[in-house]
Simulated scan of single mutants.
Amino acid sequence: MTNPSLRPSITALKKANYANVPGHWVTDWLLYVLQKSPSFLITDGDYQLTESEQTQFEAGIAQMQSGTPLAYLTGKQAFWSLEFEVNEHTLIPRPDTEVLVERVLGWIDNHAQTDDTNNSPQRLLDLGTGSGCIAISLAHELQALAPNRWQVTAIDYSKPALEVAKRNANLNDVTNIEFKQSDWFSVLNSSENSERAADKPVFDVIVSNPPYIVDNDEHLDKLKAEPLSALVAPDNGLGDIKQIVEQARDYLVRGGLLAIEHGYDQGELVRQIFTDFGYTQVETRQDYGGNDRVTWGVYA
């Protein structure tokens, strides 16, 4: 049995330097192991970890040093105003993606239909939903903003990712959402063919955070624990974006919005893609780090 005097205190662990592990990961992991609130790290700095706590803490540090993100150890990640389950089948939601949610909600507030006499709900589509963080956050906000006005559809090719997304919808009490497995729009060609045959518009808003990283990008080494299929795209990272921008025209109402997240250095190229396919009011918004991150356009 470990000598209690040799077990580290909270203060000692906070002061220690763990190679390749961000400091906030260390403190967040410590809180997870201890199952305590952040104030405990301040008020109880002399607390010494039990043997089992120390073993769990050290094992997690070793995993993070080997490339496992903190969120995969805790199994959860905060995004927008909600909390999401994540695992190796989903990308970890990042704060910069909140810019996409923010932009879409702002557009809906200014442009979307508000006629309560129309019983047909407005519809939003999220392509490549992963953990469901974008679709569920939007559905959650829209349900509060206009109950029964919006219906959200979330699509992903990965069945395991969709199972995570479904659990996240339940976790956050979001009911105005449905999930479908599909390679981008392909499922809509059959299940909603009757609507398309009548040239009836399908969605008022389409959003996506598709793969957009080049396969030889140096940043991929830091993302090796996350699913590669959700990160890398052909055609210098623009292949999936081009496909979505082109095909979205078949599923958007006239005057509908398409909004896409992309790489920090792709803003100009993505704006050109939108313009080439006939979208108007094309703009790009920067993320919290000042990098181009979300481009949108209106299907005129």
Rank of each mutant, 00 (worst) to 15 (best):
E98G: 09
G256M: 07
V174G: 00
V298G: 01
E85D: 10
I92E: 03
P121F: 07
G67H: 07
R123T: 15
R293S: 08
G23P: 00
E195V: 11
N209K: 05
T129V: 09
Q247C: 04
T2I: 15
K159P: 00
I155L: 15
K14P: 00
E195H: 14
A165K: 06
A197C: 03
L258P: 05
G289D: 12
D156T: 09
G263C: 09
G132S: 10
E283P: 00
N193V: 15
E85L: 13
Q143M: 05
G237I: 12
V164L: 10
V187D: 03
L127D: 05
I136C: 01
A12H: 13
Y279P: 06
F84S: 09
D250H: 12
N119R: 11
D240Y: 08
V205Q: 02
Q122D: 08
N119W: 04
E268K: 12
S131A: 15
P211S: 11
T153V: 12
T43R: 11
G289N: 14
G60V: 07
V205H: 02
I241N: 08
N168K: 04
A12S: 14
D292G: 04
G237K: 05
E102Q: 14
R196M: 13
N176E: 02
I108G: 03
N119Y: 05
V187L: 04
Q272C: 03
P210A: 10
A144E: 02
A12Q: 15
I260S: 04
Q48T: 15
K222A: 15
L238I: 06
W107C: 08
P211E: 10
Y18P: 01
T43N: 12
Q151M: 14
A225D: 10
D250L: 13
K222E: 13
N189W: 02
D126H: 07
W80M: 03
A161T: 07
L188G: 02
S5N: 12
P210G: 07
G297I: 08
D221F: 03
